[in-house]
Amino acid sequence: MNPANGGWVILLSLVVAMLFGVIHLPETWPGWLGWLRPNWLVLVVFFWVIELPHRVGLIAVWFFGLLVDVLYADPLGFNGFVLAGVTYVAWRFFERLRMYSVLQQCGIIFVLTLAAEILRVFVLGLGSERVWEWAALMVPTVSMLLWPLVFLFLLRIRTGARVE
């Protein structure tokens, strides 16, 4: 995430993903719509790692995750752990993942975001009375469905801004 050589595009996209994570609908709309929010950060981080594995570091992502924790009011370290996990998986297999069809990539996204949701339930269970709800499965589903769009959009930005 070095700002030089187009790195600011990566940073900006992550900040926009954070922003999308806290934009909320008008309060008069039904509350269950809140479950349809995809895990934007996982999508964006996954894209940058498989496209430019040398530009996104585990430590940097982990520290970025701390900011996300405060923003989403999650326990400190949770989002860092999730994003670092995603980075590691994507970085370890980036050559293979690039060759996958969009459908297969969608499958990977589903698995990663599902793992993040399950981990979240355990972590929150440590210090909170919140309970598992099946609606939490909507998050991986929506993330998976949005992946092709996010991928094409970010690819266009990447080629446009010549991020190397």
């Binding site: 900040v15 954070m18 922003l19 806290v22 934009i23 909320h24 701390l66 900011l67 924790d69 405060v70 923003l71 326990p75 400190l76 370290g77 949770f78 752990f81 972590v123 440590l126 210090g127």
Partner: peptide, 28 residues
Amino acid sequence: MTVESSTRLLDPLRSTLASFVSPIYIVA
């Protein structure tokens, strides 16, 4: 995560970080 669930040691860190991310709420 474990530290935070059982102690208040990390509260100062959280508030410092919160000052950085609060503009994002306002934009949202």
